[in-house]
Amino acid sequence: MAEKNTNVARQNTAKPSEIATNTLVPPVDICEDKEGVILYADLPGVDKDGLDVHIDKDTLQISGKRTACGTTDANKCYAELPEKDYYRAFTIGEEIDREKISARLTNGVLKVVLPKAERAKPKKIDIKFS
């Protein structure tokens, strides 16, 4: 637990571009409807303890610590999954309700739901006829 705290502290002080050194950029899908924005990220090899989804002001930071993928001393034949951690950051707009953001990790896929604040949702305006 202590380790995780220091990790968070480091992220608060470091700029996203500084953490981006030596990390993998996970592929993402981002879609939007009138309810909000949904982000999916492929993070194979990351478990719940290794995942950190963090919001600092306007920045959504996703970092995932990879569990060991094969032994290091063995003779490598293929090495397409590098031994690196994942990191990616996005800026989020004013219309996202910071308090209602939720995240879920299933089978190495992270789903982050960023609902829009009530005031930012599209409204249909009734037209009165007289």
Binding site: G70, T71, C77, Y78, E80
Partner: peptide, 12 residues
Amino acid sequence: AINMQEEKNAVT
């Protein structure tokens, strides 16, 4: 993407 290692008693 795959990783493959040849170990003493197995291939992983």
